[in-house]
Design a protein around this nucleic acid. Structure first.
Lengths: 190, 190
DNA sequence: TGTATTAAAGGACAAATGTCCTCGAAATTA
DNA sequence: TAATTTCGAGGACATTTGTCCTTTAATACA
Protein backbone atom coordinates (compact mmCIF):
# COMPACT_ATOMS: atom_id res chain seq x y z
CA UNK A 1 0.00 0.00 0.00
CA UNK A 2 2.95 2.30 0.63
CA UNK A 3 3.58 3.04 -3.05
CA UNK A 4 -0.10 3.73 -3.58
CA UNK A 5 -0.03 6.27 -0.78
CA UNK A 6 3.03 7.91 -2.32
CA UNK A 7 1.26 7.96 -5.66
CA UNK A 8 -1.78 9.72 -4.20
CA UNK A 9 0.36 12.19 -2.31
CA UNK A 10 2.10 13.10 -5.52
CA UNK A 11 -1.30 14.31 -6.75
CA UNK A 12 -2.58 16.17 -3.68
CA UNK A 13 -1.88 15.94 0.06
CA UNK A 14 -3.66 12.98 1.64
CA UNK A 15 -3.43 12.67 5.42
CA UNK A 16 -2.69 9.29 6.99
CA UNK A 17 -6.16 9.31 8.54
CA UNK A 18 -7.83 10.02 5.21
CA UNK A 19 -5.81 7.24 3.63
CA UNK A 20 -6.59 4.71 6.40
CA UNK A 21 -10.29 5.52 6.22
CA UNK A 22 -10.70 4.86 2.56
CA UNK A 23 -7.88 2.71 1.26
CA UNK A 24 -9.91 -0.37 2.26
CA UNK A 25 -12.03 0.26 -0.83
CA UNK A 26 -9.08 -0.91 -2.92
CA UNK A 27 -8.74 -4.69 -3.17
CA UNK A 28 -5.60 -6.59 -4.11
CA UNK A 29 -5.68 -8.78 -7.23
CA UNK A 30 -3.17 -10.87 -9.15
CA UNK A 31 -3.32 -10.87 -12.93
CA UNK A 32 -1.01 -13.49 -14.48
CA UNK A 33 0.63 -12.82 -17.82
CA UNK A 34 -1.78 -12.76 -20.80
CA UNK A 35 -4.87 -12.37 -18.59
CA UNK A 36 -7.24 -9.49 -19.16
CA UNK A 37 -8.16 -6.59 -16.92
CA UNK A 38 -10.70 -5.22 -19.40
CA UNK A 39 -12.28 -6.71 -22.50
CA UNK A 40 -13.57 -4.94 -25.60
CA UNK A 41 -17.36 -4.89 -25.70
CA UNK A 42 -17.79 -5.22 -21.96
CA UNK A 43 -18.24 -2.34 -19.55
CA UNK A 44 -15.08 -1.68 -17.57
CA UNK A 45 -16.22 -1.44 -13.96
CA UNK A 46 -12.86 -0.91 -12.33
CA UNK A 47 -9.77 1.24 -12.05
CA UNK A 48 -6.51 -0.38 -11.01
CA UNK A 49 -3.33 0.87 -9.44
CA UNK A 50 -0.43 -1.25 -10.70
CA UNK A 51 1.70 -2.45 -7.78
CA UNK A 52 3.86 -4.56 -10.05
CA UNK A 53 3.87 -5.59 -13.72
CA UNK A 54 2.88 -4.14 -17.08
CA UNK A 55 -0.38 -4.00 -19.05
CA UNK A 56 -1.05 -3.30 -22.69
CA UNK A 57 -4.15 -1.43 -23.84
CA UNK A 58 -5.32 -2.07 -27.38
CA UNK A 59 -8.29 -2.02 -29.72
CA UNK A 60 -9.15 -3.57 -33.05
CA UNK A 61 -9.15 -1.24 -36.04
CA UNK A 62 -11.41 -1.60 -39.08
CA UNK A 63 -9.03 -4.22 -40.51
CA UNK A 64 -9.28 -6.14 -37.22
CA UNK A 65 -5.66 -5.49 -36.41
CA UNK A 66 -4.72 -4.90 -32.80
CA UNK A 67 -3.64 -1.30 -32.26
CA UNK A 68 -1.80 -0.75 -29.02
CA UNK A 69 -2.67 2.62 -27.55
CA UNK A 70 -0.93 2.42 -24.21
CA UNK A 71 1.48 0.52 -22.01
CA UNK A 72 0.84 0.95 -18.29
CA UNK A 73 3.56 0.20 -15.78
CA UNK A 74 4.24 -0.08 -12.08
CA UNK A 75 2.99 2.71 -9.81
CA UNK A 76 0.52 4.01 -12.34
CA UNK A 77 -3.19 3.63 -12.86
CA UNK A 78 -4.90 1.76 -15.62
CA UNK A 79 -8.48 1.46 -16.79
CA UNK A 80 -10.50 1.67 -19.97
CA UNK A 81 -11.04 5.27 -19.07
CA UNK A 82 -13.85 6.16 -21.42
CA UNK A 83 -15.79 3.01 -20.62
CA UNK A 84 -15.28 3.43 -16.91
CA UNK A 85 -16.26 7.08 -16.83
CA UNK A 86 -19.31 6.65 -19.02
CA UNK A 87 -20.11 3.07 -17.95
CA UNK A 88 -20.52 2.10 -21.59
CA UNK A 89 -19.02 -0.94 -23.34
CA UNK A 90 -15.29 -0.66 -23.74
CA UNK A 91 -13.62 -0.14 -27.12
CA UNK A 92 -10.39 -1.23 -25.50
CA UNK A 93 -8.96 -4.41 -24.09
CA UNK A 94 -6.33 -4.34 -21.37
CA UNK A 95 -4.06 -7.33 -21.02
CA UNK A 96 -1.18 -8.12 -18.68
CA UNK A 97 2.03 -8.65 -20.67
CA UNK A 98 3.80 -9.98 -17.58
CA UNK A 99 2.60 -11.23 -14.20
CA UNK A 100 0.92 -8.29 -12.55
CA UNK A 101 -0.31 -7.24 -9.11
CA UNK A 102 -3.12 -4.69 -8.86
CA UNK A 103 -5.08 -2.64 -6.36
CA UNK A 104 -8.59 -2.39 -7.74
CA UNK A 105 -11.61 -0.20 -6.97
CA UNK A 106 -14.97 -0.54 -8.68
CA UNK A 107 -17.14 2.20 -10.09
CA UNK A 108 -19.73 2.23 -7.36
CA UNK A 109 -17.19 2.37 -4.56
CA UNK A 110 -15.38 5.18 -6.28
CA UNK A 111 -18.59 7.20 -6.67
CA UNK A 112 -19.11 6.54 -2.98
CA UNK A 113 -15.68 7.84 -2.20
CA UNK A 114 -16.40 10.97 -4.23
CA UNK A 115 -19.59 11.50 -2.20
CA UNK A 116 -17.96 10.95 1.14
CA UNK A 117 -14.73 12.79 0.72
CA UNK A 118 -13.85 16.00 -1.05
CA UNK A 119 -10.22 14.88 -0.93
CA UNK A 120 -11.13 11.94 -3.15
CA UNK A 121 -13.33 14.10 -5.32
CA UNK A 122 -10.26 16.25 -5.79
CA UNK A 123 -8.07 13.26 -6.57
CA UNK A 124 -10.57 12.16 -9.21
CA UNK A 125 -10.41 15.54 -10.90
CA UNK A 126 -6.63 15.74 -10.75
CA UNK A 127 -6.27 12.26 -12.21
CA UNK A 128 -8.57 13.17 -15.08
CA UNK A 129 -6.51 16.31 -15.66
CA UNK A 130 -3.29 14.28 -15.69
CA UNK A 131 -4.70 11.68 -18.02
CA UNK A 132 -5.58 14.50 -20.36
CA UNK A 133 -2.10 15.96 -20.29
CA UNK A 134 -0.49 12.60 -20.99
CA UNK A 135 -2.84 12.03 -23.91
CA UNK A 136 -2.18 15.52 -25.26
CA UNK A 137 1.54 14.79 -25.20
CA UNK A 138 0.97 11.45 -26.93
CA UNK A 139 -1.12 13.08 -29.66
CA UNK A 140 1.45 15.77 -30.21
CA UNK A 141 4.20 13.17 -30.57
CA UNK A 142 2.18 11.09 -33.01
CA UNK A 143 1.41 14.15 -35.04
CA UNK A 144 4.80 15.80 -35.24
CA UNK A 145 7.53 13.26 -34.97
CA UNK A 146 8.85 10.91 -37.62
CA UNK A 147 8.91 7.16 -37.09
CA UNK A 148 12.55 7.31 -36.06
CA UNK A 149 12.04 10.16 -33.62
CA UNK A 150 9.16 8.32 -32.02
CA UNK A 151 11.21 5.18 -31.59
CA UNK A 152 14.12 7.12 -30.10
CA UNK A 153 11.71 8.79 -27.69
CA UNK A 154 10.39 5.41 -26.58
CA UNK A 155 13.95 4.18 -26.17
CA UNK A 156 14.69 7.14 -23.95
CA UNK A 157 11.48 7.57 -21.99
CA UNK A 158 10.09 4.05 -21.64
CA UNK A 159 12.99 1.67 -22.31
CA UNK A 160 11.53 -1.01 -20.06
CA UNK A 161 8.72 -1.51 -22.57
CA UNK A 162 11.16 -2.68 -25.22
CA UNK A 163 11.99 -5.92 -23.40
CA UNK A 164 8.43 -6.68 -22.47
CA UNK A 165 6.34 -5.98 -25.55
CA UNK A 166 6.49 -7.57 -29.01
CA UNK A 167 7.75 -5.72 -32.06
CA UNK A 168 4.24 -5.79 -33.41
CA UNK A 169 2.80 -4.07 -30.37
CA UNK A 170 5.58 -1.52 -30.19
CA UNK A 171 5.10 -0.65 -33.87
CA UNK A 172 1.37 -0.12 -33.50
CA UNK A 173 1.95 1.88 -30.32
CA UNK A 174 4.20 4.20 -32.34
CA UNK A 175 1.69 4.36 -35.17
CA UNK A 176 4.04 2.75 -37.70
CA UNK A 177 4.29 -0.64 -39.38
CA UNK A 178 6.47 -3.52 -38.31
CA UNK A 179 8.48 -3.08 -41.49
CA UNK A 180 9.30 0.53 -40.70
CA UNK A 181 10.26 -0.34 -37.14
CA UNK A 182 12.53 -3.07 -38.43
CA UNK A 183 14.28 -0.58 -40.70
CA UNK A 184 14.74 1.90 -37.87
CA UNK A 185 16.14 -0.70 -35.51
CA UNK A 186 18.62 -1.80 -38.15
CA UNK A 187 19.70 1.76 -38.80
CA UNK A 188 20.21 2.48 -35.13
CA UNK A 189 22.29 -0.59 -34.32
CA UNK A 190 24.79 0.23 -37.05
CA UNK B 1 -26.04 32.82 -20.24
CA UNK B 2 -28.75 30.45 -21.42
CA UNK B 3 -26.42 28.41 -23.65
CA UNK B 4 -23.88 28.19 -20.87
CA UNK B 5 -26.53 26.76 -18.56
CA UNK B 6 -27.49 24.22 -21.21
CA UNK B 7 -23.83 23.32 -21.63
CA UNK B 8 -23.39 22.69 -17.89
CA UNK B 9 -26.58 20.68 -17.71
CA UNK B 10 -25.33 18.46 -20.49
CA UNK B 11 -22.51 17.49 -18.13
CA UNK B 12 -24.41 17.04 -14.87
CA UNK B 13 -27.69 18.37 -13.48
CA UNK B 14 -27.30 21.95 -12.23
CA UNK B 15 -30.31 23.46 -10.46
CA UNK B 16 -31.41 27.00 -11.30
CA UNK B 17 -30.46 28.05 -7.77
CA UNK B 18 -26.98 26.57 -8.05
CA UNK B 19 -26.55 28.29 -11.40
CA UNK B 20 -27.77 31.68 -10.13
CA UNK B 21 -25.48 31.48 -7.09
CA UNK B 22 -22.31 30.93 -8.97
CA UNK B 23 -22.66 32.03 -12.57
CA UNK B 24 -21.67 35.54 -11.47
CA UNK B 25 -18.10 34.29 -11.31
CA UNK B 26 -18.09 34.17 -15.10
CA UNK B 27 -17.44 37.53 -16.77
CA UNK B 28 -18.31 38.49 -20.32
CA UNK B 29 -15.48 39.46 -22.67
CA UNK B 30 -15.19 40.36 -26.35
CA UNK B 31 -12.18 39.09 -28.26
CA UNK B 32 -11.96 40.63 -31.75
CA UNK B 33 -10.49 38.61 -34.61
CA UNK B 34 -6.73 37.96 -34.35
CA UNK B 35 -6.60 38.86 -30.64
CA UNK B 36 -5.20 36.40 -28.15
CA UNK B 37 -6.86 34.60 -25.27
CA UNK B 38 -3.61 32.91 -24.18
CA UNK B 39 0.00 33.51 -25.15
CA UNK B 40 2.87 31.04 -25.24
CA UNK B 41 5.27 31.57 -22.34
CA UNK B 42 2.69 33.21 -20.09
CA UNK B 43 0.61 31.43 -17.49
CA UNK B 44 -2.97 30.97 -18.65
CA UNK B 45 -5.10 32.14 -15.73
CA UNK B 46 -8.49 31.63 -17.27
CA UNK B 47 -10.98 29.23 -18.79
CA UNK B 48 -13.50 30.55 -21.28
CA UNK B 49 -16.88 29.40 -22.49
CA UNK B 50 -17.31 30.48 -26.11
CA UNK B 51 -20.66 32.21 -26.58
CA UNK B 52 -19.87 33.03 -30.18
CA UNK B 53 -16.90 32.74 -32.50
CA UNK B 54 -13.92 30.45 -33.07
CA UNK B 55 -10.45 30.20 -31.57
CA UNK B 56 -7.34 28.45 -32.79
CA UNK B 57 -4.86 26.83 -30.41
CA UNK B 58 -1.29 26.43 -31.63
CA UNK B 59 2.32 26.09 -30.58
CA UNK B 60 5.67 26.57 -32.25
CA UNK B 61 7.59 23.40 -33.08
CA UNK B 62 11.39 23.08 -33.11
CA UNK B 63 11.46 24.64 -36.61
CA UNK B 64 9.41 27.57 -35.27
CA UNK B 65 6.44 26.63 -37.41
CA UNK B 66 2.99 27.14 -35.99
CA UNK B 67 1.30 23.80 -35.33
CA UNK B 68 -2.44 24.07 -34.79
CA UNK B 69 -3.60 21.59 -32.20
CA UNK B 70 -7.21 22.61 -31.81
CA UNK B 71 -10.05 24.72 -33.11
CA UNK B 72 -12.63 25.66 -30.46
CA UNK B 73 -16.09 26.75 -31.44
CA UNK B 74 -19.33 28.13 -30.09
CA UNK B 75 -20.78 26.52 -26.95
CA UNK B 76 -17.53 24.88 -25.97
CA UNK B 77 -14.80 25.67 -23.50
CA UNK B 78 -11.29 26.75 -24.31
CA UNK B 79 -8.14 27.23 -22.28
CA UNK B 80 -4.51 26.29 -22.37
CA UNK B 81 -5.48 23.34 -20.25
CA UNK B 82 -2.09 22.18 -19.05
CA UNK B 83 -0.98 25.68 -18.18
CA UNK B 84 -4.23 26.47 -16.44
CA UNK B 85 -4.32 23.28 -14.40
CA UNK B 86 -0.67 23.43 -13.36
CA UNK B 87 -0.41 27.25 -13.38
CA UNK B 88 2.82 26.99 -15.34
CA UNK B 89 3.79 28.98 -18.47
CA UNK B 90 1.75 27.98 -21.48
CA UNK B 91 3.26 26.10 -24.41
CA UNK B 92 0.22 27.12 -26.41
CA UNK B 93 -1.21 30.31 -27.81
CA UNK B 94 -4.93 30.70 -28.35
CA UNK B 95 -6.09 33.23 -30.91
CA UNK B 96 -9.53 34.26 -32.12
CA UNK B 97 -9.87 33.56 -35.85
CA UNK B 98 -13.11 35.54 -35.98
CA UNK B 99 -14.80 38.04 -33.66
CA UNK B 100 -15.52 36.12 -30.48
CA UNK B 101 -17.60 36.53 -27.33
CA UNK B 102 -16.51 34.72 -24.18
CA UNK B 103 -17.58 33.99 -20.61
CA UNK B 104 -14.41 33.87 -18.56
CA UNK B 105 -13.51 32.59 -15.10
CA UNK B 106 -10.08 32.89 -13.54
CA UNK B 107 -8.12 30.22 -11.73
CA UNK B 108 -8.67 31.53 -8.21
CA UNK B 109 -12.39 31.93 -8.64
CA UNK B 110 -12.66 28.43 -10.03
CA UNK B 111 -10.75 26.96 -7.08
CA UNK B 112 -13.16 28.91 -4.90
CA UNK B 113 -16.08 27.39 -6.70
CA UNK B 114 -14.62 23.93 -6.21
CA UNK B 115 -14.33 24.65 -2.48
CA UNK B 116 -17.80 26.02 -2.11
CA UNK B 117 -19.77 23.61 -4.20
CA UNK B 118 -19.47 19.91 -4.80
CA UNK B 119 -21.62 20.39 -7.90
CA UNK B 120 -18.85 22.51 -9.39
CA UNK B 121 -16.17 20.16 -8.15
CA UNK B 122 -18.07 17.50 -10.03
CA UNK B 123 -18.31 19.65 -13.14
CA UNK B 124 -14.54 20.19 -13.01
CA UNK B 125 -13.91 16.47 -12.94
CA UNK B 126 -16.39 15.71 -15.69
CA UNK B 127 -14.90 18.39 -17.93
CA UNK B 128 -11.43 16.93 -17.40
CA UNK B 129 -12.81 13.50 -18.25
CA UNK B 130 -14.43 14.85 -21.42
CA UNK B 131 -11.32 16.69 -22.48
CA UNK B 132 -9.45 13.44 -22.10
CA UNK B 133 -11.90 11.53 -24.27
CA UNK B 134 -11.77 14.15 -27.01
CA UNK B 135 -7.98 14.07 -26.95
CA UNK B 136 -7.94 10.28 -27.04
CA UNK B 137 -10.13 10.36 -30.11
CA UNK B 138 -7.88 12.97 -31.73
CA UNK B 139 -4.78 10.86 -31.02
CA UNK B 140 -6.41 7.77 -32.43
CA UNK B 141 -7.37 9.62 -35.61
CA UNK B 142 -3.88 11.06 -36.06
CA UNK B 143 -2.39 7.65 -35.55
CA UNK B 144 -4.60 5.50 -37.74
CA UNK B 145 -6.06 7.53 -40.55
CA UNK B 146 -4.44 8.61 -43.78
CA UNK B 147 -4.20 12.25 -44.77
CA UNK B 148 -7.28 11.88 -46.97
CA UNK B 149 -9.32 10.15 -44.29
CA UNK B 150 -8.46 12.85 -41.80
CA UNK B 151 -9.51 15.57 -44.22
CA UNK B 152 -12.78 13.82 -45.00
CA UNK B 153 -13.43 13.47 -41.29
CA UNK B 154 -12.89 17.19 -40.78
CA UNK B 155 -15.18 17.90 -43.73
CA UNK B 156 -17.87 15.79 -42.10
CA UNK B 157 -17.45 16.58 -38.42
CA UNK B 158 -16.26 20.18 -38.35
CA UNK B 159 -17.12 21.67 -41.74
CA UNK B 160 -17.49 25.17 -40.31
CA UNK B 161 -13.73 25.23 -39.65
CA UNK B 162 -13.01 25.02 -43.38
CA UNK B 163 -14.36 28.49 -44.11
CA UNK B 164 -12.76 30.10 -41.13
CA UNK B 165 -9.22 28.76 -40.94
CA UNK B 166 -6.38 29.06 -43.46
CA UNK B 167 -5.12 26.11 -45.49
CA UNK B 168 -1.90 26.25 -43.54
CA UNK B 169 -3.66 25.95 -40.19
CA UNK B 170 -5.94 23.17 -41.38
CA UNK B 171 -2.97 21.20 -42.69
CA UNK B 172 -1.05 21.45 -39.45
CA UNK B 173 -4.18 20.58 -37.50
CA UNK B 174 -4.43 17.39 -39.57
CA UNK B 175 -0.73 16.70 -39.11
CA UNK B 176 0.03 16.93 -42.84
CA UNK B 177 1.75 19.45 -45.11
CA UNK B 178 0.08 22.13 -47.16
CA UNK B 179 1.20 20.29 -50.27
CA UNK B 180 -0.54 17.09 -49.27
CA UNK B 181 -3.71 18.97 -48.36
CA UNK B 182 -3.66 20.69 -51.73
CA UNK B 183 -3.43 17.29 -53.48
CA UNK B 184 -6.33 15.92 -51.45
CA UNK B 185 -8.54 18.91 -52.11
CA UNK B 186 -7.86 18.61 -55.84
CA UNK B 187 -8.65 14.92 -55.83
CA UNK B 188 -11.91 15.43 -53.94
CA UNK B 189 -13.31 18.20 -56.12
CA UNK B 190 -12.94 16.05 -59.26
C1' DT C 1 11.85 -35.26 -30.29
C1' DG C 2 9.94 -33.81 -34.40
C1' DT C 3 6.30 -30.89 -36.37
C1' DA C 4 3.66 -26.87 -36.50
C1' DT C 5 3.17 -22.22 -35.35
C1' DT C 6 4.63 -17.70 -34.45
C1' DA C 7 7.88 -13.78 -34.38
C1' DA C 8 11.36 -10.92 -36.32
C1' DA C 9 14.31 -9.37 -40.13
C1' DG C 10 14.66 -7.79 -44.40
C1' DG C 11 14.27 -7.72 -50.10
C1' DA C 12 11.62 -5.64 -53.90
C1' DC C 13 8.55 -2.66 -55.31
C1' DA C 14 4.51 0.69 -54.82
C1' DA C 15 2.18 4.38 -52.75
C1' DA C 16 1.92 8.30 -49.89
C1' DT C 17 3.84 12.27 -48.34
C1' DG C 18 7.35 15.87 -47.96
C1' DT C 19 10.54 19.47 -49.95
C1' DC C 20 11.46 23.07 -52.85
C1' DC C 21 9.95 25.75 -56.17
C1' DT C 22 7.03 28.75 -59.39
C1' DC C 23 2.88 30.96 -60.70
C1' DG C 24 -1.16 33.69 -60.43
C1' DA C 25 -4.95 35.61 -57.73
C1' DA C 26 -6.32 38.11 -53.85
C1' DA C 27 -5.46 41.12 -50.16
C1' DT C 28 -2.87 44.80 -48.16
C1' DT C 29 -0.50 48.99 -48.05
C1' DA C 30 1.95 53.11 -49.50
C1' DT D 1 -3.81 53.13 -58.29
C1' DA D 2 0.48 50.77 -58.29
C1' DA D 3 3.60 48.15 -55.72
C1' DT D 4 4.14 44.70 -52.34
C1' DT D 5 2.94 40.91 -49.69
C1' DT D 6 0.32 36.86 -48.60
C1' DC D 7 -2.05 32.79 -49.80
C1' DG D 8 -3.37 28.75 -52.24
C1' DA D 9 -2.55 25.61 -56.25
C1' DG D 10 0.32 22.63 -58.19
C1' DG D 11 4.97 20.77 -60.96
C1' DA D 12 9.21 17.95 -60.28
C1' DC D 13 11.65 15.17 -57.65
C1' DA D 14 13.27 12.95 -53.18
C1' DT D 15 12.25 10.56 -49.11
C1' DT D 16 9.61 7.99 -46.11
C1' DT D 17 6.64 4.57 -45.22
C1' DG D 18 3.68 0.77 -46.48
C1' DT D 19 2.57 -3.80 -48.79
C1' DC D 20 3.64 -8.25 -49.90
C1' DC D 21 6.59 -11.79 -49.62
C1' DT D 22 10.48 -14.98 -48.17
C1' DT D 23 13.72 -16.65 -44.91
C1' DT D 24 15.32 -17.86 -40.52
C1' DA D 25 15.07 -18.49 -35.73
C1' DA D 26 12.51 -19.13 -31.72
C1' DT D 27 8.64 -21.09 -29.40
C1' DA D 28 4.83 -24.09 -28.55
C1' DC D 29 2.86 -28.53 -28.63
C1' DA D 30 1.45 -33.13 -29.31
Amino acid sequence: MENFKLFLNSLTPVSDGEFENYSQYFKGRSLPKNNYFAVQGKICHEVAFIKKGTLRTYYLNEKSEEVTSCFCTQNNLTTSYKSFVSQQPSELSIQAIEDTELLVIDYRDLQNLYQKSSVWQNIGRIIAERQYMVMEQYASVLCNETAKEKYLRLLKEEPSILNKASINDIASYLGITRRTLSRIRKEITK
